[in-house]
């Protein structure tokens, strides 16, 4: 995975799903990428904490099955960041396509 894309993925998933907890995020990434992208928890949680520290995410806790589950969701600031991060990702992919002369694969 390219550096910096993890944050974009997290922000986009939270925009689409409202609120999610750590394990749910890893499973969603696995599901959407059909198992091609494996998001390790060792990378996910520090990224979540970093985004939380930057004020882009907020957390709430709920007791589920007798244990505390921490849900992450976007703050208003995080909502704005999704748009700019998605734009950055789009521009980067376009540049990469131009540089490597990639053509869409025909199946």
């Amino acid at each position: 995975m390219l550096k910096g894309t993890l944050q974009t993925i997290i922000l986009k998933l939270l925009e689409d799903n409202g609120r999610m907890y750590g394990y749910e995020i890893t499973q969603k990434v696995k599901e959407v990428s059909a198992g091609e992208v494996m998001l390790t928890e060792g990378a996910l949680y520090p990224a979540l904490h970093k985004l939380e520290g930057e004020g882009l995410l907020q957390t709430t806790s709920e007791i589920v099955d007798g244990r505390a589950r921490k849900y992450y969701s976007l703050t208003p600031q995080g909502g704005k960041a999704v748009t700019s991060k998605m734009e950055e990702a789009r521009a980067f992919i376009e540049q990469l396509q131009n540089l490597l002369d990639l053509k869409p694969a025909i199946k």
Partner: peptide
């Protein structure tokens, strides 16, 4: 192993602590 073992746990703890210190 997915978490990264003991090293991974400690890295997660450090990141959480950094977040709190910053906040």
């Amino acid at each position: 192993n997915d978490i990264g073992g003991i090293k991974g746990l400690k890295a997660i703890q450090r990141s959480a602590k950094r977040t709190v210190i910053k906040a």
